[in-house]
Design a protein around this nucleic acid. Structure first.
Length: 611
RNA sequence: CGGGAAGUGGCGCAGCUUGGUAGCGCAUCUGCUUUGGGAGCAGAGGGUCGCAGGUUCGAAUCCUGUCUUCCCGACCA
């Protein structure tokens, strides 16, 4: 390919609406253009990169005995009703109507279609196991598309679905997919960590995500939307939405700071509507405070969550514990309606700490509105702590649980707290660290969730009808590309891992009007095409050398061959994008050296400069 | 969904307060010079100032509505 005819133009200025590095660079280097919020055209350079990623994905999936097919993006409402997800998926489902006012959606994922397909086609256990996949556009009406290709409303995803006659068989496939994924991301040059994750709206039990960690950057520049909790010693790794830990072993006995009070005492704490203010007022640390947060489940049920003051509630964990579809904090209006109290003073001192036994009737709100209690595990061992009692501007200190408190029926004890860096690993008892990450793939054990709701079954060996045991496996193809740019770039532009660079080599004649340089550049171009196929670019533009160097750096090709002043002596310069060094080569050894040079650029060991 | 900001040639911006026939840089095109890290000079083309209504002799500018885009939030009692 000659650059003069390549459909790509570079921008000097950063478009004002691009926030993250990958978005900026892909725009500036002429890879993508936005059509509307969260929707992009992939220009030829981008498309080549995406195809290279897809090819790697296909090769590894095929190697794992999965079969590629292609399912429709446009899907009817009825199909989604049959799985129950037409309503469950919520606003993220991109919905539309046809001319007869029939409802359709654009596929955000493919369980419904594939399960129906299996139901029709697979009749016997003899046809199992089966793993089917596709690479196609997916649609999610994100509440806030952002970060360019990292979170768009339209994106390219590889989604695979496996069908099994037993859990054991699914377990084996799950491991096979985990291996395939590791191979895929390694080949793409994207360093990932497999972490335990929450299964979210797709449902099911066991699931893992493949996270590209971005923690190599200075704190303020860490990109990615997920926090990954991990332990160096045990190898434990989990999304913060799923992670558990041993809480920091701080003194949770408030006897010390409150020694001036004799037993449980009511203390004036005006306007302490945050833990921070309360600590300041009482001159104590947060871990001796028991805070109470009021949540609303599915917009109807009230749940009070008791949490140690220095920890936050992990809402995903809470949601799963409660089996809630939606969850939100109660509004201040609701607090007033239920208890006539203010933010900062929600608490059940009287019900839980006064006397020997708890009185759950007094936990109810006005007019007997039921409120269920959920106690985080960290709260149980607390002694002589601070707790509110619905009375504004007052807290109780030196409070202690009634003796049967956490065993009382109607009080649930569960782990719903957000892991903090420095908490201890449940496996190794060593401190955990937290790093930002970009999710580029995930694997789920769906079990029989979809096969049961959609009544997809096969005839088992014993003649009975059994629902399929299913797994599903996704890779965000377009997100992998953006994530790679997020990881591999410098001040001058993109630095593609060789495997997914749109072109491996760019030949730059410094001055196209110099006949010697021009002739040699063209000769090398022809030679390299025989070695690399169409993976070589010739910058044949009549531009100054500086312009061409800048563009080559911005676009991020791994190897640049400059045909310049040494052309007369039959010599050229080779430069790896990720390196500062120039290598002088004899022109006649270029085609034999190119692959060696490219192999030198090993993306997995490259560390970007800390800016 | 809540809050904030912004829409002016392809990209980045100024002009708006105090209405008077639209400008700068980059990019594009032509010519000359230049030619190893985003060149210089001279010239050219390209915009119904997001859209709709209103005020006015006159609106990019003032008013109303609307659409779009971006940012922050939607997690702490």
């Amino acid at each position: 390919m000659k650059i003069s005819t390549l459909f790509a133009s570079t921008l000097r200025d950063v478009p004002a609406d691009a926030e993250v590095v990958s978005h900026q660079l892909l725009l500036r280097a002429g890879y993508i253009r936005r059509i509307t919020s969260g929707v992009y055209s992939y220009l030829p350079l981008m498309w080549r990169t995406l195809q290279k990623i897809s090819t790697i994905v296909r090769e590894e999936m095929n190697r794992a005995n999965a079969q590629e097919l292609l399912m429709p993006i446009l899907q009817p409402r009825e199909l989604w009703e049959s799985s129950g997800r037409w309503s469950v998926y919520g606003d993220e489902l991109m919905r539309l109507k046809d001319r007869h006012q029939r409802d359709f959606c654009l596929a955000p994922t493919g369980e419904e279609v594939i399960t129906q397909l299996a139901q029709i086609e697979v009749k016997s256990y003899r046809q199992l196991p089966l793993n089917l996949y596709q690479v196609s556009n997916k649609y999610r009406d994100e509440r806030r598309p952002r970060f360019g290709l990292l979170r768009g409303r339209e994106f390219i995803m590889k989604d695979a679905y496996s069908f099994h006659a037993s859990q054991a068989c699914l377990d084996r496939e799950y491991d096979v997919m985990a291996e395939a994924y590791t191979a895929i991301f390694n080949r793409c040059g994207v360093k990932t960590k497999m972490v335990a994750s929450d299964s979210g709206a797709i449902g099911g039990a066991v699931s893992h995500e493949f996270m590209m960690l971005t923690g190599y950057q200075a704190e303020a520049q860490q990109s990615g939307e997920n926090d990954v909790v991990h332990c160096e010693t045990s190898g434990y790794a989990a999304n913060s939405e799923k992670a558990t830990s041993i809480p920091q072993p701080l003194a949770v006995d408030g006897a010390e700071p409150f020694s001036q009070y004799n037993g449980a005492t009511k203390v004036e704490t005006p306007y302490t509507d945050s833990i921070e203010k309360l600590c300041k007022k009482l001159k104590c640390s947060a871990e001796v405070i028991c805070k109470t947060l009021l949540y609303v489940k599915d917009d109807t049920d009230f749940i009070a969550v008791l949490m140690r003051g220095d920890y936050d509630v992990e809402e995903t964990k809470l949601k799963n514990t409660l089996g809630a579809l939606t969850l939100r904090m109660a509004t201040e209006d609701e607090l007033t309606r239920l208890y006539e109290t203010k933010k900062g003073f929600v608490g059940y001192y009287e019900a839980l700490c006064l006397g020997e036994t708890v009185d759950l009737t007094s936990v109810q709100g006005k007019e007997g509105t039921p409120v269920s209690l959920l106690v985080d595990k960290t709260v149980v061992p607390m002694k002589n702590f601070v707790i509110a009692n619905m009375e504004a501007h007052v807290h109780w200190v030196n409070a202690n649980w009634a003796s049967n408190c956490c065993q009382t029926e109607g009080i649930t004890v569960a782990d719903v707290r957000t892991v903090k860096a420095g908490d201890l690993c449940v496996e190794s008892n060593q401190p955990l660290s937290i790093t930002r990450g970009i999710e580029v793939g995930n694997i789920f054990q769906l079990g029989t969730k979809y096969s049961e709701s959609m009544q997809a079954s096969y005839t088992a060996e014993d003649g009975t009808e059994q629902p399929f045991v299913m797994g599903c496996y996704g890779i965000g193809v377009s997100r992998v590309a953006a994530a790679a740019v997020e990881r591999y770039h410098d001040a001058n532009g993109i630095i593609w891992p060789t495997a997914i660079a749109p072109y491996q080599v760019i030949i730059v004649p410094a001055n196209v009007k110099d006949e010697t340089q021009w002739a040699l550049a063209n000769q090398l171009y022809a030679e390299l095409k025989t070695v690399l196929g169409d993976d070589v670019l010739l910058d044949d533009r009549d531009e100054r050398a500086g312009v061409k160097f800048k563009d080559a750096d911005l676009m991020g090709f791994p190897l640049r061959i400059t045909v310049g002043k040494l052309a007369g002596e039959g010599k050229v310069e080779a430069k790896l994008r990720a390196s500062k060094d120039l290598i002088i080569l004899d022109a006649n050894e270029v085609s034999t050296q190119v692959k060696t040079l490219l192999a030198e650029w090993d993306a997995l060991s490259w560390e970007p400069p800390v800016v």
